[in-house]
């Protein structure tokens, strides 16, 4: 299984990377929405993409919209990573086609619960 992590924070990328690799999940990283979108299209397929909300260049929401407009990417589950300050956005995200959302901070259990809820079955 392969996962894409899109976050401008190195810390978060490393954190997710270590959680994923411990579980035998191959993890690809991108630093903003634009790169994330490019990865989805060129380095796929991915079972799941974890997308941060607030990023430079292209925000997570913009990436989500673009990804969902591209039906070749439909198989990839998209989980939005937000903070509590962005709670209001969750609804918008789900409407725009996100499969799940997860609020920072989260732990290993929380992450994998959310992934299962998003319908990632390979875990």
């Amino acid at each position: 299984m392969r996962a894409l992590v899109v976050d401008d924070s190195r810390f978060i990328r490393n954190y997710l990377h270590s959680l994923f690799t411990q579980h035998g999940v191959e993890c690809v990283e991108a630093v903003d929405g634009k790169q994330g979108l490019a990865c989805l299209r060129e380095a796929g397929p991915f079972s799941v993409a974890l997308v941060d909300w607030n990023m430079p260049v292209m925000s997570g929401y913009e990436m989500l919209q673009a990804a969902r407009a591209d039906h070749s990417l439909d198989a990839t589950r998209i989980v939005m990573v937000t903070t509590e300050a962005e709670n209001d956005h969750i609804e918008a995200a789900l409407l725009a086609g996100a499969d799940e959302y997860i609020v920072k901070p989260f732990d290993e259990g929380g992450l994998f619960d959310k992934l299962r809820m998003a319908g990632v079955n390979e875990l």
Partner: peptide, 17 residues
């Protein structure tokens, strides 16, 4: 303003971990 916001936002988003 967006850049400044993001700097603080990122710190806040990661401290919780």
């Amino acid at each position: 303003l967006a850049d400044i916001f993001r700097s603080v936002h990122t710190i806040k988003g990661t401290t919780g971990f």
